[in-house]
Structures are given as C-alpha cells and as structure tokens.
Design a protein around this nucleic acid. Structure first.
Lengths: 394, 394
DNA sequence: TTTGGCACTCGGGTCAGCCGAGTGCCAGAA
DNA sequence: TTCTGGCACTCGGCTGACCCGAGTGCCAAA
C-alpha cells in the first residue's frame, strides 16, 4: 500500500510505479489513494525517504518545481511560468532547466498547459502528489487554537455545537464546511422516554450519550395504560441504557411477551418505531455553512458553481461524501477522485471526530481543487479534535 | 392607506398621489407599501376600481403596456422594445403610440432604459405597481395542489414537515425558499419533561402543540432527588400545560417556594433555564432550500449572487426578513424595499402560516426582482395553507 | 390623439493587428 | 550527462476600426 495513484502508462520504464489496475473512472484512484493520503498526511512526510522507483534521481528538484507550481497557482490563481517560478522560489537553476522539468512533469501528467503560450497549472494528479508527498499539514497557531476552543466552548446544546463547528470551519478555511451530527449507530443510549400525548398517541424521545435527541410520535393500535407505559419505559432503559444503538433491537426483542396480551400490540408498535428510527439511516443529519465562499471559486465559477450548489442541496450526496471518509486519519479527495460528478472540480477534505478514540461522525470542507491543502487540512484536523473534546465533556 | 409608494416628485400636478414622506432609503417605501401589497394581492385587484387620481384617463392602456413589459421581461430577461411589444400582445395600437406611453411611464419612474438604444425594463416601482394593481395571484392547478398535499402528507416529524415544505416551495417556485419553524412564543406547551442524567444534571425537554421539541441540559447547584423531580414535573405540567409559552413564567413563578429549602436553588435553576429557552428568541429556527436556483439569476449574477448567499447564511437576516412579514395576508418586498442591502436586487414573497387562524410562523421565497410574481405568490400561498393543515392534524 | 416616417444613438459583434508571456529546441558550457 | 543562454515561434488577449441593427425621439400629417 505505498503506490502512487494512476500514473500515466505512456512513458514506460520510466515512471515505474506499481500502479494499481487502471480503472476507467475515478473510483479506483480514490480507493487506492485514500489510505495513502491519510497515512502520509498524518506523518507529514516531505519525501526524505529513500526515493521511490517511480521517481527518477533528479526528482528531488522536479518535486520542488511541482511544489512551487502548486503553491504559486493556489496563490495567484493564474498559470505559472518558468521565469516567475525561479524568481519567486530560489530553485538555484535557470528558467530553461525548469522548463525541462516542467516538460517532464507535464509528460507524466502532473501539470497541464491551458494554451501553448501559457504557464502550467497542476492537474488532479499533481495535487495528489503534492498532498501525499510534498506538503505538511499546517498546524494552527496558538491564538487560532485558543479562538477555536473559546468559540466552541460557548455552545449550550448539541445543535449549538454542530452549528458553531460548521460556521467556525467555514470561516477558518474560507470554504464550504459540512458537519455530520453524531451518528446514531455509533452512539449509546442515554435515555429513552415515553410520553402519553393522548390515549393512543405516544411520544418517543431518544437521548444519546452525544447529546443528540430524536423524537417520534407513535400511534398505537389501542390505548396504553399509564402503568404499562411506566413499565415499558423502565424496562427499556434498563436493557438499552448505555448500549450501542445497533445492539438495542436484539436486547429488547422479547419485551412484548412479558406484557399482558392486551398491551402487546401497543408495545410492539412502540418498539418497531424505535427500531425504525435506529435503522433508517435517513436519521443522519448534516449541517452546512459557508456557501457564500463558493463565489471565490474562480473566474469561470458560474459554470462550476451550479453543480456544486446542487450537490450541497442533496443531503444524500453529502452523506455519501462523508461516508467515504476513512475511519482513521484524514481523507482528501481531489477533483475527479470524487464519485459525485458535480463535485469533479472540487476537493473534499474530511475527517472523523468523536468523543474518545471512536469516531462518531465526520466533518469536512469542500473547496476548489485549487485550494490551500496544508492550511485546510490543519484547520479540519484541529476543529475535529476540539469538537471531540467538547463532546467528551458534555 | 391607499397610496402608491415613492412616486417621483419631478412631474408635479400629474402623478398626484398622496405620497408619503419621501425618505432617503427603502424603509418608508416598505412601510407604506406593505399593507397595500397584502390587501390588494389578496383581493386580486385588476384595477377595475374607479381609476385613481394618480392615473390619467389614458392609463388604462399605459397600465396594459406596463403589464406587458413586466410579463415580457420576466419571460425573456431582455429589455423589451415597442415593436416586440405590439407584436406579442395585441394592444391595438402602433409601436409609436406605445413609445409615447413608454416615455410617460419612464418619466414617472415605472420603467427604465439601460442604454439609449435599448428596450425598457421595469423598475422596482414598476414591479410594485404590477403587483399591487395589475396582477392576479395565480392559483395552483388541481394536480399541483394534489402533489403538494401528497408530498407533505408523508412527513413523520416536525423536522420532516419543515424540510419537506421548504424543498417543495423551492421546487415549485424554482427559487430560494425559507421556512421558519413554528415560533415558541406563539405555541402552547404540550408537555415538559425532566430527566435526571446524573445526580445534578437534568435534561429539560419541551414539547409544543406544533410538535416542536427543544431540549436543554441543566446543571443544578446540588443533587436533585427523584421525588423532587417528579413533583416538579407534575406541577410544571399542571400549570403550564396548554398555555402559551410567554405566559408560562408568570404561572410558575411561585413554584420554588413550595419546595423544601434545600431544593429551592435547584428548582430555580431549572425554571430559569426554561425561561431562557422561552424568552431568547434565538430559539427561532429556520430552514433553507433551493440555493442552487440562485444560478438562474441572470447574466450578471456573479455580482448579485454573493451578497445574497451571504444574507442567506445569516439566520438573523433571514429571521428579520420573515419577521417583517405582515401577520395577515401576503407580503411582497421588491428590490430596494428590502431593508437588508444584500437583498436589494431580490424580491421576497412571504406569508404567515399556522394550524388555525393564528399564524405561528412565516415562510417565503427569495428570488430576483425579475420574477413571476403571480405564480410565486400562488405557490407560496398554497404551500402555506397546506402546511397549516398538516400542523393542525398532528 | 394616434400614426407613419425618419434621422439618430449606441451596444455588441467581427476582424485585423500588435504585444508579450511563455514555450520548445538547440548548441555550447560545465 | 546535465545545465544554460539564446532564439524563433505560438497564441491568448487587448485595442481600435468598423458595421449592423434594434430601438428610440421627434415631427408632421391623419
């Protein structure tokens, strides 16, 4: 598991990476690159390892060139040429040399030239290499960390925590931020409450250890007695309390049989509503912020912004997006590595967060492929950590 | 209360409307025009009333011209000229005549010419007149109504109702939709639940008659006994149940004194947390959908879209926006009539909804000033009605 | 008061030409 | 073998000239 994703098969015997099967679309690239990205980003490798087979001797410098191109392009948003490059970064070589390197890099598919007489811009593959090997995650500064901490500490509520987190993330990265509510399936039951609203109408309230509260109204087949309700409530809590939600159905399966026949149907109805809430993952919720940052996408953004906005409207798309996040480490998906087509011109940086070691949900950022990866990754990681702490405290 | 908003003071003795004080900005115009809009839109006036003083004899036709201009411009998004106008609408007069009328309309500030050699486009004032006197609210078709009904009926949850409503509205109008959750201040208490999470940690759950559920965690000064909790719960519900939230504080004010001294501090803490939840109107929540429709704004939308997106990010702005909605009838705010500057190039159509006659919250649509007012108003009204029904049923 | 006619305006599109950033290649130097 | 300076070449984008046509305003006549 140490290969570079999708190297162009054209120059044979040169870029001799142990390529995975070169599938047609994005999926394979993503699958391969994901863990790599996570590991390397976390370790903040800057390529001092014994240089790999897929990289020629000279590559030390070529990599610097690529890094410089990415940095400049991210900054200026304009194709960067050889001359400007040697001026801004002291590469110690002449523009002509850089041009040769650029030619190689282009041949290998890391950069690309919009027009013959223009500078180069990084390709998705170029960004990938940059993220995997050329960039360190930029840690937040102490004042920034303090600000994050302070901002999140004011939350009164799980809703509030999530809302603050997502706004914070959007503000820090100046991009679109997405935060998933702690998943029910990874939470434990803190309390189940049953309230009689009417003779045969019960409100079911679920409270999780992460502070999430879900409610459902249950129409029971017949009226439910107060004692039955109290009884059921007590037994439910005794059995399910502290347990993980997915385990609950099995634990309370036999409850109906312990009630009088007249009440069994009611109890069964309540339980099945409960299970539905647990199983149906449509209970996954998501919060979004920073859409206004989409306008900073670039000159041509009217074209790219629409599909992105559409994607953001679809909870399902966002959930799937976050769902693809690796459980451990940070996931970076660049451009076409994204499964959803509308996001092909964006990159997604996401990470799990949780109160302990376990990740209970994901959060992330969506921005143009041309984005400040080190900074974004730093912000995402920092925010995730702090949210985890906040959740653990409450 | 029957005047046209901000008529240009230039032609004196002609447009002899009883103008309000012509303030510098939008505020006065809005204040004046709002009730007018609501009344007239509701009554669907088409100007058969005895023609007003501010309109000359000829105006019957001039109004038709204005109406035609609005309709064409909304359709084509391009300045409309005299020739095209007579071709598309059979006005029974020649282009030259129409040109004369247009000159008058422009003089009076209803339409405007982007360039000397271009057609005309309506001004905010022109749209205002259109909405107030020239357009009928377009009712939904029977199949549309059925679809609305059907779509909303599937909701399981207040969250779900709101989510479905907002998406529906965005889809119907192809614009940005905003729905406010039923306001706490206009709801009654269905149930208050107190749960002991830890010895001195209580979860407070509020359930309203509109199905809204709010929770808060209360850290009490000392441990709370189970009996105290049950006692407090029972008394709270007895006193507050069925009452409007704003009335609750007064009704339970004296509760602490009926508890043992040791528990009083705890009870007071719980109650004050309860009050905070009720009073702080930051508990107003809002849901948004259809942001992707912003891309249909127009050619120049990169300029206009950013401030709009920013406005939509700010819950406060949206709440204020909806807050300005009249309690009865539909409110239409056009362009600069909107207080918030970022929305100066948009129009907002909003209306209250509620389970009975009372409106418990507002919903609306935000679109370009150049929008299909009759259709939008029809959709907004219809959706509001159905949501009201759904809420009444649950 | 309406209409046809007419001169006028001006935005937008097309085309040629220029400029300059940036390239690729090559021959010579290290 | 690798780097470098030089040089010819490309081509996107800007500028200015030009034209076209939609649309107007005005005027005189019906």
């Amino acid at each position: 598991m140490f290969d570079e994703p999708e190297s162009d098969p054209r120059p044979p015997g040169r870029a001799s990476a142990s390529d995975g099967p070169s599938g047609p679309k994005a999926a394979p690239a993503r699958a391969v690159s994901r863990p790599t990205a996570a590991q390397r980003a976390a370790a903040a490798v800057l390529a001092p390892e014994p240089s790999r087979l897929d990289v020629r001797q000279l590559d030390e410098r070529k990599l610097s060139v690529l890094r410089a191109i990415v940095q400049d392009y991210v900054g200026t948003e304009e194709p960067v040429g050889s001359k400007a490059l040697v001026e801004r970064h002291n590469l110690g070589v002449s523009p002509a040399t850089v041009r040769n390197d650029m030619a190689t890099l282009e041949e290998d598919g890391y950069i690309h030239q919009p027009h013959t007489s223009a500078g180069r811009i990084p390709t998705d593959k170029g960004y990938r290499l940059f993220v995997d090997r050329l960039a360190e995650v930029k840690p937040m500064s102490a004042p920034e960390r303090r600000a994050i901490r302070h901002f999140l500490d004011g939350a009164v509520d799980l809703d509030d925590v999530v809302a603050r987190t997502v706004r914070l993330l959007a503000q820090l990265t100046r991009q679109v931020a997405v935060v998933q509510y702690p998943s029910l399936t990874r939470s434990t039951v803190r309390h189940v409450e049953l309230l009689a609203l009417a003779p045969s109408k019960i409100m079911l309230v679920l409270i999780t250890n992460t502070g999430r509260v879900e409610q459902r109204i249950v129409d029971t087949p017949g009226p439910v007695g107060e004692t039955t309700l109290a009884d059921l409530r007590a037994r439910l809590n005794a059995r399910a309390g502290g347990r993980f939600f997915p385990d609950v159905p099995a634990l309370v399966e036999d409850l109906p049989s312990s009630f009088e026949p007249a009440e069994r149907a009611n109890v069964t109805t309540v339980l099945s509503t409960l299970f539905e809430s647990l199983v149906e993952q449509n209970e996954e919720r998501i919060m979004l912020a920073g859409t206004a940052n989409l306008t900073r996408f670039g000159h041509d953004f009217p074209l790219t912004i629409q599909p992105v906005l559409e994607a953001l409207e679809e909870q399902v798309v966002l959930l799937r997006l976050l769902g693809e996040t690796a459980d451990a480490g940070m996931t970076v998906r660049i451009g076409r590595e994204n499964e959803y087509e509308g996001l092909n011109s964006t990159s997604v940086v996401s990470v799990g967060y949780g109160s302990g070691d376990e990740s209970v949900a994901k959060l992330g950022v969506i921005g143009p492929t041309r984005m400040d990866y080190p900074g974004t990754m730093g912000a995402v990681r920092a925010v995730a950590r702090y949210v985890g702490q906040i959740l653990a405290e409450s």
